[in-house]
Amino acid sequence: MTDDRVQSFLIGDVEVLRIVEWQGPYVPAATLVPECGPEVWDAHEAQLVPDHREEGGDRAVVALQTWVLRSGGRTVLVDTGVGDGRERPGNPLFHRRQGDFLRRLERAGIRPRDVDVVVNTHLHADHVGWNTVDAGGEWAPAFPRARYLLPAADDRHFGPAGGYAGGARPLDRLVYEDSVAPVHRAGLAELWDSTYRIDEHLVLESAPGHTPGSSVLHVASRGERAVFVGDLVHSPVQILRPECNSCFCLDPAQAARTRWRVLERAAEERALVVPAHFGGAGAVEVRAAAHGFRLHRWAV
């Protein structure tokens, strides 16, 4: 399933566009967030169905998407989805996928040479795939004028310095070699730790746990705020129950602490929370609640 609509909104002077690569039911909800049992999903059914849990079924609904920010005269991509033609054995949705993501970008008025900055919130397969394209049998940067901002901790962990995540999953080597290493070879990669200011409105901050280098992007302009949280949360159920981790979190205890910290700040600052994989409106304001947070207002 795909979605041709281009959602857009403003955070002060920063324009935000949403480009959806794919959207639909993915895996059983209890598989995606195993620390939330079926009773938790059922208790919040009215808030989850149909945009985040399929109607009449038990699968979580997710989106693969890129958020485009126009800030200070520059075009910034936040995460780049799965990509085409990748060897991703074991994942039918990702494996040798063919789509029209670059055409979707161009229909939104964004050509590859227009992109100034690419932010990978972390280096999992569904966040780096369109970093590169097949250029005559070799992988080359898809956005040839862009700086690619990569979390240094993830680059160490998933790259050759970390033995491609210790060799635990052959997929990690494949992802790094086709979607990250070519950016390094082209001289376009910039590694960062702790915090990194892109411009007066955009600041990256480390948010480890999901992966060693997981990060969030804070946006602040004219008194309005948003935080692009990557895979800090995969489903709204993790906002309602922030102690619950996804099945993909490499350090669950640290991921839960980070999730609480980032959501507490978002609630205090009235910041819009923009995850990588929410279906529906894709972004939501949160407020503090007795045992976590509540969903206050969805983006238009």
Rank of each mutant, 00 (worst) to 15 (best):
V117M: 01
V119N: 00
N120D: 14
N120E: 07
N120R: 02
T121E: 05
T121C: 08
H122I: 06
L123V: 00
L123F: 06
A125E: 14
D126R: 10
H127W: 08
H127C: 12
H127K: 14
H127T: 07
V128W: 12
G129A: 04
N131A: 03
N131Y: 02
N131H: 03
V133T: 13
D134N: 11
D134V: 04
D134K: 06
A135N: 13
G136A: 10
G137K: 10
E138D: 13
P141F: 01
A142D: 03
F143L: 07
R145N: 13
L149Q: 08
L150P: 03
L150G: 04
P151A: 12
D154V: 03
D155G: 04
D155C: 08
D155W: 14
D155Q: 14
F158I: 01
P160S: 11
A161N: 10
A161Y: 11
G163W: 04
Y164A: 11
Y164V: 10
G166C: 05
G167Q: 11
G167T: 12
G167L: 09
R169A: 09
R169W: 10
L171V: 14
R173F: 04
R173A: 14
L174Q: 12
V175M: 02
E177W: 05
E177Q: 15
D178R: 07
V180Q: 01
P182Q: 07
H184C: 08
H184F: 06
R185V: 05
A186L: 05
G187Y: 02
G187D: 07
G187P: 00
L188I: 14
L188T: 15
L191D: 15
W192P: 00
W192F: 05
S194W: 09
S194M: 04
S194Q: 14
S194P: 06
